[in-house]
């Protein structure tokens, strides 16, 4: 039984089928890449998996402690609480809030508080607040951002905004982390750094990572398995070595010239 099972997932936008009959699976603690040309439907697939948009057809089910959970009728916040976290291709931070608040918000769903105790400021409120703050700082440390706690997210350099998105997603304590082009706009040095970090968090937090990336060196470096999407359909699946030799993949990437 896989951790995440996706069956025949399809999304039509009017006449356009952005994702077409995708069947895939993610196992516990593996690092998988999703690649494909521009407009192949990778981001749309992420949106379907995380509940941001409802699928036209198909199912997404997650293996949990309480048994199999069908996710595709759930709201995004329920999907997130079930353990699926993501970053966004076009960064979506809480721009006018501090770095620390960005992370704390992601932790909130797991730290429920009664209206009364937060209004009355009972000691338990402050105690929990201190714990959460320490936890958030620990996460930020991994990404070397512990000195920027009070900076507004909008004032961070681009590379750090991308890293903060990953920290924020991690703060929800996910089982599966979806990264949509985390290295976009980064220089080779930053990309190498990020590659190392992705591996580190996968091991440290024992999570599964699904990664969309155009940077092939990054993909071939970290991915244990690769899915290839073209025109909304999966055209190949395999290890990096297999994918590099796959005729259809080479064709898709070279634009049908082979």
């Amino acid at each position: 039984m896989s951790l995440l099972d996706v069956k025949d997932l399809t999304k039509n936008f009017g006449g356009l089928t952005a994702v077409s009959g995708v069947t895939m699976h993610l196992e516990d603690n593996e690092l998988v890449a999703l690649i494909g040309p521009n407009g192949a439907g990778k981001t749309t697939l992420f949106n379907l998996l995380t509940g941001v948009i409802p699928p036209s057809e198909g199912t997404v089910s997650l293996q949990t402690d309480q048994g199999l959970q069908v996710l595709n009728k759930k709201k995004p916040y329920q999907v997130a609480q079930a353990g699926l976290a993501r970053t966004f291709q076009n960064i979506r931070l809480f721009k006018d809030l501090s770095v620390l608040d960005n992370v704390l918000i992601a932790m909130t769903a797991k730290h429920k508080e009664s209206f009364v105790s937060s209004i009355l400021r009972l000691p338990s409120y402050y105690k929990k607040e201190v714990e959460m703050r320490e936890e958030a700082i620990e996460l930020l440390k991994i990404f070397d951002m512990q000195d920027k706690l009070d900076n507004l997210a909008r004032n961070l350099p681009y590379g750090e905004q991308r890293r903060l998105e990953i920290v924020r997603a991690l703060a929800t304590k996910p089982k599966i982390l979806f990264l949509d082009e985390p290295a976009a706009g980064m220089n080779p040095e930053e990309t190498a750094d990020l590659t190392r970090l992705i591996r580190q968090i996968q091991n440290e937090f024992h999570i599964t990572v699904l990664l969309i990336e155009h940077d092939m060196s990054l993909v071939m470096n970290v991915a244990e398995r690769i899915y290839v999407l073209e025109y909304g359909q999966l055209i190949a699946e395999g290890t990096p070595a297999e994918i590099q030799k796959n005729e259809r993949v080479i064709k898709a990437y070279l634009g049908g010239e082979s």
Binding site: R92, F94, K95, T108, E113, S118
Partner: peptide, 21 residues
């Protein structure tokens, strides 16, 4: 409070807020 932060995240970005639970 924590609740207030959740409220502000809605103002900042509804899609991101929902995706964070």
């Amino acid at each position: 409070s924590r609740d207030g932060r959740a409220v502000m995240s809605v103002r900042e970005d509804e899609i991101a807020a929902e995706s964070m639970g």
